[in-house]
């Protein structure tokens, strides 16, 4: 992994959404700390899997990276350019290299546009803004090429989203993301809404494009089996913090953080033999609300292995060797400054 060029670098990213009160004069009374200081890198042609439960800030992270939310602090570097301080023009240009695929293939496609127009839209927008020099005829050709590439007949160009099944719609979503020839795709739960047999089709499709185009993915999912399958490296998030990050095989074989252990043991495995003999770590309670500032380990409330120390300071994410980083006092004694 070290020899690959870094494409995307995120440093101390923080996204706090204000909680306001008051009818006419709004006053900030608190903040939802959706993402609370995270750093990671994605190399060229690499897939970083971001995994965690709902509300842990996975999607907010992706949206901050794409500059759909302006992060409250921290920086996002795409090929060395800091997008958080970049001008609108530069962000527009950067979006050519960075596209998103969304979770819900029903909500993310405009029902009043035909499949062809949906896939062509990014091209049309960049043409209009003068970034892209492309003729209408070329656009049509490109759209047809993309449709065949994602496994849709080009004769479906004039159909509307409701005429497609969920899997086919997600293929349209993938084609739209590929239209501008991006270097990295931010995939926010792209297979969660799909059936098992369709899910594997889309996962294979994404893997094929990665090989062919040397794409990078920031792949977000809550399903650990899916994440393990597609990712080179995995970052486990909890309450807006990264708890552990490692190579995907390493993480599954030697999880260090108690939260990762619990997550892994909670995933049902489709084999009754294994299921019967498995020891399951059942976490008690729910994920706490991210609206308070924490001075303890973020996982403290639910951790089965908590110590006194964990209540006093926040453990830092420390490299335990070979790029396996963990934020837990069981493995080191470094606190966050």
């Amino acid at each position: 992994m070290e020899n690959k060029k870094t494409l995307l670098e995120v440093k101390d990213l923080q996204m706090h959404f204000p909680i306001e009160s008051g009818v006419i004069i709004k006053k900030k009374v608190g903040a939802i700390r959706a993402v609370d200081g995270i750093s990671f890198e994605v190399g060229e042609g690499e897939t970083l899997g971001l995994v965690g439960e709902s509300g842990c800030g996975k999607s907010t992270t992706a949206r901050c990276v794409a500059q759909l939310h302006k992060p409250t602090a921290g920086s996002v570097f795409l090929e060395g350019n800091n997008l958080c301080t970049a001008s609108k023009e530069d962000i527009l240009r950067a979006r050519m290299d960075m596209q998103m695929v969304f979770q819900d293939p029903y909500a993310s496609l405009n029902p009043r546009m035909t499949a062809g127009n949906i896939i062509a839209e990014p091209l049309q927008i960049f043409k209009k803004r003068g970034v892209l020099n492309i003729g209408q005829k070329e656009i049509v050709e490109k759209v047809e090429g993309l449709m065949e590439k994602v496994g849709l007949s080009r004769f479906f160009r004039n159909r509307y989203p409701h005429e497609f099944s969920g899997g086919q719609r997600q293929r349209i979503g993938v084609a739209r993301a590929l239209a501008l020839g991006p270097k990295i795709i931010l995939a926010d739960e792209p297979v969660s809404a799909l059936d098992v047999s369709i899910q594997s089709q889309i996962l294979n499709l994404l893997a094929d494009f990665q090989q062919e185009l040397n794409l990078s993915y920031l792949f977000i999912a809550h399903d650990l089996a899916v994440i393990q399958h597609i990712s080179d490296r995995i970052a486990v998030m909890y309450l807006g913090k990264i708890m552990e990050t490692a190579d995907s095989l390493d993480l599954y074989k030697h999880p260090l953080h108690p939260y990762t252990e619990a997550l892994l043991s909670a995933v049902p495995i489709p084999d009754p033999e294994i299921e019967r003999n498995r020891h399951r770590i059942i976490l008690t309670g729910d994920v706490p609300s991210p609206d308070t500032e924490r001075h303890s380990c973020y996982f403290y409330d639910r951790c089965p292995k908590k110590m006194d120390k964990c209540a006093k300071s926040v453990p830092a994410l420390v490299d335990m060797g070979g790029g396996h980083k963990v934020a837990c006092f069981l493995h080191h004694a470094v606190s966050e400054s």
Partner: peptide, 9 residues
């Protein structure tokens, strides 16, 4: 077609 945690990738 289900990716498995317990099997090699």
């Amino acid at each position: 077609s289900v990716p498995r945690l317990d099997k090699p990738k």
